[in-house]
């Protein structure tokens, strides 16, 4: 319990500094006022519209990335070394293709709408997912696979009963990383061109100099991120048991 004292301490410090005028309350409104604004936004319903559209965009981008990235990573990691060597450099090049660059290109083709934002999120999520699945698949102990084959398991059951469980931890690490990044990119995409969403709310409040609203929106994004991460952490602990003799060392929960 004592470990978590620092966060409330920080909030109290913020509150006192701002109220006492040590930092300018115009720029840094007290925490309590920001929370009150957040509550107002929630009560008036303004928050939920932005939140739900942001969540929808983030999750659909994430889902697309998982659909593409998991098989891609697993095939690259689980199969021949030569295939990996062939595709490693192109993947490195593609992963350098900045999502903001992509944003401009997708807008050209599909126009301003949901597509550029979701593409950007999916593109960003794709890499941690694919690389996670790849390193998971590469790490499967070949003895286990050989043992499975010796017991007469078919290719499908080797995949479902040996390879996937053995790689599960790293697959989930990649997915979790990607989930965090999905929100990350989405906020940027919504700042670059949107009329709804939490990122838009932040930028719009900043441009109209409603700083309390801006901080409230920032907090809402932070809470959404924490909630998604916690939910996912729970899910991964249910689905992927930790290997024996190892404690959970995941950050952020």
């Amino acid at each position: 319990m004592a470990r978590h004292v620092s966060i409330p301490a920080f909030l109290v410090l913020w509150e006192t500094l701002s109220r006492s005028g040590a930092i300018r309350a115009v720029f840094f409104p007290p925490f309590s006022q920001v929370m009150a604004t957040l509550a107002e936004l929630a009560v008036s319903g303004e928050l939920w519209g932005h939140l739900s559209i942001s969540l929808l965009r983030a999750l659909s981008g994430f889902a697309l990335a998982a659909l593409a990235g998991l098989p891609l990573g697993f095939v690259l990691g689980g199969h021949s070394r030569s295939l990996f060597e062939l595709l490693d450099l192109p993947m490195e090049i593609l992963s350098q293709l900045n999502p903001f660059l992509l944003f401009h290109l997708v807008i050209l083709v599909m126009g301003i709408g949901e597509a550029p934002k979701i593409t950007m999120v999916a593109w960003t999520c794709l890499w941690p997912i694919a690389f996670g699945a790849m390193s998971g698949a590469r790490g499967v102990n070949p003895e286990l696979v050989r043992a499975g084959r010796a017991f007469g398991l078919s290719g499908v059951s080797i995949l479902s009963r040996i390879r996937l469980p053995a790689a599960g931890r790293q697959i989930f690490q990649g997915l979790r990383l990607a989930l965090g990044q999905s929100l990350f990119m989405l906020v940027a995409a919504e700042m670059m061109g949107a009329s709804r969403g939490l990122g838009f709310l932040v930028l719009d409040s900043q441009e109209t100099f409603q700083l309390r609203k801006m901080y409230a929106a920032v907090l809402a994004i932070a809470f959404l991120g924490l909630a998604l991460d916690a939910l996912f952490g729970l899910l991964s602990r249910l689905l992927v048991p930790l290997p024996p003799g190892q404690s959970a060392n995941t950050a952020g929960d």
């Binding site: 990350f184 932040v202 409040s205 920032v218 932070a222």
Partner: peptide
């Protein structure tokens, strides 16, 4: 004492910080 706070700060979305 500070670790939880630092971890939270490290996870703040930089695009939110930009404004």
């Amino acid at each position: 004492f500070l670790e939880p706070l630092l971890r939270v700060l490290g996870q703040i979305n930089p695009y939110c910080l930009f404004p």
